[in-house]
Design a protein around this nucleic acid. Structure first.
Lengths: 152, 152
DNA sequence: GTTTTTGCAAACCCTTTGCAAGTGA
DNA sequence: TCACTTGCAAAGGGTTTGCAAAAAC
């Protein structure tokens, strides 16, 4: 486990303790999987990987733990157009996503100037921005194998 | 039914005929409901309203007809964070949405300069934009009754 | 008369929850 | 000890589909 992952796991432990919750083998396993993974994982992905660390982890526990990690601000939940929730470890920098309609590849981008405009637009309509979702669906022109399982 | 709605219904008829599909009472009822409504309707909303025109319309037919209308480019499907599909009649101008987290109110906005930036970002990452989704979630500061059923 | 459509009900798929048994502090 | 957790399995909630009857053309 990378140093960064280890630190995030520690932050999760702190969060649990602060909330009067318990640190269990299952939660640690799930957290370390999420913090050690790069992509945008579905609950199933996480479940499969967590079971490699702790064979007894059940799906419901993954579900409930991801809810905790989201509440703790250590993971972010996305719902892209495939109808499944996907999670990624929280980053310092906010970013959005561009998704290839053909191969499912997901690339992240940052666009501060868009965020600024968006803030201004919302204000003009009488809204205070709480969050947003900006997804671009496109076709990637890089060599990508179409039959391939979307990697993230 | 407004003139605009009538014209859209006609366009749907043309589409059906072009595709070798049949024009039925149910499809007409559903189309006229969608084209005569302002907001962002769920399948259920459409079902309920269509039944007022044609009592025998079933939910599955609404589902299948909305698929046709989307394919015909006469309706647009959105999936906001409430987990349901919502539809609106197709507009000439592309727009995005800002949604009140408290009362569910949906306001539309256009931001050509964001679209331009987004196009440029995608290109830079090797993507050709096919579509996008840009939703802002915020709190509206206008008087809005919280208990109220989200209107659209 | 064919072929497409419809409504029903069931299947699906992912998400969420109730509960009795298990476990961490 | 004892409240918090877990895994299982079932319930939810919206979407999708198979099929025999009905309706377009």
């Amino acid at each position: 486990m990378s140093e960064q992952a280890a630190e995030l796991v520690q932050r999760f432990r702190d969060y649990l303790s602060r909330e009067g919750l318990k640190c269990t083998r299952q939660r640690e396993a799930i957290a370390s999987v999420v913090f050690s993974s790069e992509g945008h994982l579905t609950l199933n992905d996480i479940h499969v990987r967590a079971q490699q660390v702790q064979p007894s982890v059940g799906f419901a526990t993954v579900y409930r733990t991801m809810k905790l990690l989201s509440e703790a601000g250590l993971a972010t939940q996305h719902r892209f157009d495939d109808g499944q929730s996907r999670f990624e470890r929280a980053d310092e920098d906010h970013h959005d996503h561009i998704i290839c309609s053909r191969c499912g590849r997901i690339v992240e981008f940052e666009a501060p100037e868009i965020e600024v405009r968006q803030e201004r637009i919302a204000l003009g309509l009488g809204f205070k921005v709480v969050s947003h979702r900006h997804e671009i669906y496109g076709e990637c022109m890089l060599p990508c194998r179409y039959g391939e399982e979307p990697s993230a």
